[in-house]
Amino acid sequence: MKIPSAHYDRHRDDSQAMTPLIDVVFLLLIFFVCASTDQVRESLLPTELAGGSIESPATNPGPRPLGEAWVRVLAGDGGGRGGEGPRIEVEGRSFAGPQRYQLLSKFLKTLATAAPELPVILDIEPDVPLGEALAAYDAARAADFDAIHFAVDPATTTTAAPPATR
């Protein structure tokens, strides 16, 4: 009679190999669920200020722009909390309603194509919500102007140093 000297317990090995696999897979699952829960990826809207005094040096090598483009964001009746929301005035044009930022962006892109060196000055009323103010700034950035500035109420600062951006 032949007696087997050794027996490879293949079935047992296979069943045991599944346990750590399931363990690791579940650990991975829990890890990614915990990592993705309640995590909103924030983006950045950069702004480059002019520190201290914003007065430009007298020896500016570039050509002087012919004027300035003032973008006035007026609070309006709705104030951004329903209703019409803020109204935007640029170079004698007025943009209101839900499509105001698309129209503003289109107008500013046309303006930037003709004169990208034109400094854009954002004059935002104090009651305008931050979301609306940044939407106007975003539209000016998208138009790719060389310089975008924020106009500041002199009452806000004691040294009358309004920040300039970009």
Binding site: E42, S43, L44, L45, P46, T47, E48, L49, A50, G51, G52, I54, L134, T157, T159, A161, P162, P163
Partner: peptide, 13 residues
């Protein structure tokens, strides 16, 4: 920030 001489500002959006 401008008065302190800090020029880099970013808005979280």
């Amino acid at each position: 920030c401008a008065q302190a001489g800090i020029t880099r500002i970013g808005y979280a959006v």
